[in-house]
Amino acid sequence: MRGLLSHGGFIGWGDCLVLGVPVAGGRGLVSRARVVVVGAAAFGLLTGVAVWAVAEPACDGHLRLTVAASPDIAPAVRESGRRWQRQQPRIGGRCVKLRVRAADPARVAAVAGQKLGGDLDVAGAHVSPSADPDLPDAWLPDSSSWLARLRGIDRAAIPAFAPPIAMSPVVLALPEPAARAGGWPAEQIGWDYVLAGARPKSSLSVATLEPRRSAVGLSSLLLTGMLATSAAKTAGQDPETAVLGAYRALAAERVATVGELVGILPRSDRPEELRRRVGAALLSEHSIREYDASRPAVPLAAVYPEPAAPPLDYPYAIMARVSTGEARAAARFQSWLLAEPSRRLFTRHGFRAPDGSGGPDFPTGNGITAEPLPPPREVTPEAVREALRRWTKASAP
C-alpha cells in the first residue's frame, strides 16, 4: 500500500503499513481497526488520499474493578475514572471495567468491621453484611481515621500504605452575619469562640457531627479535647474533667449527618433567627463551598483558626484479600489518581492537593482562599481511641 510521508515540508507518497497487533493467546491479527483518512493537497490540487489502519488489541475477557469513594469526592473520582477508561487499561490482556460508587465511609467501615470479626461503633450506621456482601476492591474514605479504626480489629486486613488523593481542611463555619459581627474578615476569630459554645449553659449553639460516624466530627472532637486540655492546664484544673465537660456540651448539639446539620442552619439574617438556629459548626472546607454554591439565604463563612483541626485526607486503600489482577488494576488506578491531571481535576472540584496547596483553578470565596495550608500534625491511633472513649462516656444518657 502507499501512504503519506513528509518530504522537505511537502506531503508526498510513500509506504503505508497496516499494523496487526497479536493479542495474548496467539490469535494473530485483530479484525477490529481504527481507520483514519487523510487528504493531502499540493498547490491547490488534490493529490491523493491514504488510509492508515491501526489495529486495536482485543480483550481477553474483562476484569471488574470496584472503588467505593466517600460521597463528597465520588463525582470527581468518577470523572477521573472516565478519563482513565478512555486509555483502555489492561491487566494481563484483560480490559479493566471500572465502577466507582459513592459509599458512606461509616457504612463501609461497619461492614468491613463485621466481616473482620469485630464490631466498629459507628453510632447507628451499622449495616448487615448480607445487605452489602461485597467489599470494594479499593476504598477511598474521607479520612485515614477509618483505616486506623479498622486496623484495631485486624491489622493485616488494612494496608499500611494508603496514600492521600486529596485534602480538605476542617474549619470553623459561621453564618456570615455572625462572623461579621465578630469582626471577620478583618479580624481573625479564634477557637475560643468554639470553646465558649462548648461550656455548660452557653448561649452559643455549636453543632457537632457524631464523631463515631463522621470523620469531621472526630476531627472536631480531637481539636476540642486538645483545646480543653490546654485551657485546663493553664488554669490549674483537672484536664479529664475539662475534656468531659466540653464533650458533654458538644453532645447536646450533635447531629448524625451533614444533611441534618444543614437543616438547622439559619434561614434568614433576622437577629431572632440567628439566635434560634445553630451559631457555629466545624465542617470541611469542601462542604462549606458546596453549601454556599447552593445560594442559601444566609451563606457560611469559612474561618481558619490556629491550631488547625485534623483535615480530611482521602486515602486510597487497596483492600487486602482481593485477587492479584484486581490488586494490580487498583494500583494502576491509584497511580492515575495521583498523577497531575487528576490533581488538577480534584482542584477544580474544590479539593486541595494532599500537601494543602490550592492552585489557580481552586474555587474561592466566603473566606475560602487558595493559600497553601501548613502540613497537619499526625494523629495517632491511640489519640483516636482515647477521644472516642471519652466521647462515649460523656455522651451516654
Results as ranks from 00 to 15, higher is better:
residue 246 A to G: 04
residue 246 A to W: 03
residue 248 R to A: 10
residue 249 A to T: 09
residue 250 L to R: 08
residue 254 R to T: 10
residue 256 A to W: 06
residue 257 T to N: 05
residue 257 T to L: 03
residue 259 G to T: 11
residue 260 E to Q: 15
residue 260 E to K: 06
residue 264 I to V: 15
residue 265 L to P: 00
residue 265 L to Y: 07
residue 268 S to T: 15
residue 270 R to G: 12
residue 275 R to A: 14
residue 278 V to F: 02
residue 278 V to M: 14
residue 279 G to M: 08
residue 283 L to V: 09
residue 283 L to D: 05
residue 284 S to Y: 03
residue 287 S to P: 11
residue 288 I to Y: 02
residue 290 E to H: 09
residue 291 Y to H: 13
residue 294 S to R: 13
residue 295 R to H: 15
residue 295 R to L: 14
residue 296 P to V: 01
residue 300 L to R: 02
residue 300 L to G: 00
residue 301 A to F: 06
residue 302 A to N: 03
residue 305 P to N: 05
residue 305 P to D: 07
residue 305 P to A: 02
residue 306 E to S: 14
residue 307 P to G: 03
residue 308 A to K: 06
residue 308 A to W: 01
residue 310 P to N: 01
residue 312 L to W: 00
residue 313 D to R: 02
residue 313 D to N: 04
residue 313 D to G: 01
residue 315 P to R: 00
residue 319 M to P: 09
residue 321 R to Y: 08
residue 321 R to N: 14
residue 323 S to C: 12
residue 323 S to D: 07
residue 324 T to R: 15
residue 324 T to C: 10
residue 324 T to F: 13
residue 325 G to R: 01
residue 325 G to V: 03
residue 326 E to T: 02
residue 326 E to M: 11
residue 327 A to V: 03
residue 328 R to Y: 08
residue 329 A to E: 08
residue 329 A to C: 06
residue 330 A to F: 07
residue 331 A to Y: 10
residue 333 F to D: 08
residue 335 S to C: 13
residue 335 S to P: 07
residue 336 W to L: 06
residue 338 L to M: 13
residue 338 L to A: 09
residue 339 A to Y: 03
residue 339 A to N: 12
residue 340 E to N: 14
residue 341 P to F: 05
residue 341 P to R: 04
residue 348 R to Q: 15
residue 350 G to T: 03
residue 354 P to Y: 00
residue 356 G to Q: 02
residue 357 S to R: 13
residue 359 G to R: 01
residue 359 G to L: 00
residue 362 F to P: 00
residue 364 T to W: 14
residue 368 I to T: 11
residue 369 T to G: 14
residue 369 T to F: 08
residue 369 T to C: 11
residue 370 A to H: 09
residue 370 A to K: 12
residue 372 P to H: 11
residue 374 P to D: 13
residue 375 P to T: 07
residue 376 P to F: 15
residue 376 P to D: 12
residue 377 R to W: 14
residue 378 E to F: 13
residue 380 T to S: 15
residue 380 T to R: 14
residue 384 V to Q: 13
